[in-house]
Design a protein around this nucleic acid. Structure first.
Length: 332
DNA sequence: AAATCGTGGTG
DNA sequence: TCACCAAGATT
């Protein structure tokens, strides 16, 4: 029965075969390793819908790993703006330069795992998808589907890996992994799974239990404190003063509005031009935008008509939008 | 090894 | 509206 599981899953996947730009149809020759790597890094903690258009833009601008390795850091970061988790972009640059210097991607899981920005999941995924390796690929989708198949509430990493390995076929591990992830994204969803449409329903112990959503057990939720920040609006001759954030930490290396470090308490400040609330992974930020006269420190004048090219992360893009919207309202 | 690191979509 | 969470990696 288990021998049929991967076959049925793959057949279901082939029948649907969502047209993703970075993959070729199941069973066809492995796609280009650069495209697989780029898409997998972009997809870390990021939805297919969000990645798809950004992947196309990125690939058109830097078609090869050598081209990406030769790019300016600031250009890559600007192209990444809005995608979040900017350490990925910094690691992407470092990885591209290592790969270009060594003349290509490593073809083994261990070799890939040693590159910056490539962890357990991404190494296994690239090895399986791009190089046909028999790798055990585990992302959040694979974990959820597997936990439900075997009715595992909170397995250890070793037990989970053993369970995934037990259903990974000897051939086409890459197609199998993509089929599992697609199933997890579209049918075996975290909430309200569509068990009636599932090709694995008859194998699923969670379905048999009558309450598949119990598997895996939900993880503990951390409280999300509010922090407060001030951003300075410094405008001159149709341009605005931008700075670059420190390379480490939140929004590291990204373009930004200048301003002091964010604090737990709200700071007394000048009249606000606008205010935005932005939710990060582990805290929410109340950012007040205030007018200031003269630029301080390192930075540059960014003309308003090229602001879209500045590569502002979403927080600051929204802050700028809020000021311009408020200004338009007053003018009207 | 628990904390850190973005953003947008959805049930 | 809002809690949840996504093709995780790093330190």
């Amino acid at each position: 029965m288990r021998a049929n599981l991967s076959d049925r899953l793959l057949q279901h996947y082939v029948d649907k075969c969502r047209a993703l730009p970075w993959r070729s149809p199941p069973g066809s020759p492995p796609p280009d390793s650069y495209r697989v790597w780029l898409s997998e890094v972009m997809l870390q903690q990021t939805t297919v819908a969000a990645v798809t258009p950004r992947f196309e833009r990125f690939l058109a601008r830097w078609p090869t790993v050598e081209a990406l390795a030769a790019a300016l850091d600031e250009d890559v970061l600007a192209e990444w703006a809005g995608l979040g988790y900017y350490a990925r972009a910094r690691n992407l640059i470092a990885c591209a330069r290592e790969v270009a210097a060594r003349g290509g991607f490593p073809t083994t899981e261990a070799g890939l795992r040693a590159l910056p920005g490539i962890g357990d999941y991404t190494a296994a995924a690239i090895a399986a998808i791009a190089f046909g390796a028999h790798a055990v690929v585990i992302d959040a989708n694979v974990e959820r589907v597997t936990c439900r198949l075997f009715a595992l509430a909170a397995p250890t990493r070793g037990d989970l890996r053993a369970a995934v390995a037990s259903i990974t076929p000897a051939e086409r591990a890459g197609d199998f992994a993509q089929a599992m992830m697609d199933l997890g994204a579209t049918i075996c969803r975290p909430r309200a799974p569509l068990c009636d449409s599932c090709p694995l329903r008859d194998d699923c112990r969670a379905f048999a239990s009558g309450n598949p959503e119990r598997f895996p057990a939900p993880k503990a939720k951390a409280a999300k404190p509010v922090r407060h920040g001030v951003a300075q609006w410094i405008e001159r001759d149709g341009a605005i003063w931008l700075v670059r954030r420190p390379t480490k930490g939140l929004l590291g290396g990204m373009a930004a509005l200048p301003g002091p470090v964010w604090t737990a308490e709200r700071q007394a400040n000048a009249p606000e031009l606008a205010r935005v609330r932005h939710v990060f992974t582990h805290f929410a930020l109340e950012l007040a935008v205030v007018a200031a006269a003269d630029p301080v420190g390192e930075g540059w004048w960014q003309p308003f008509d090229t602001l879209a090219d500045a590569g502002l992360p979403t927080l600051y893009r929204r802050a700028v939008d809020a000021v311009l919207t408020e200004r338009g309202r007053i003018a009207a």
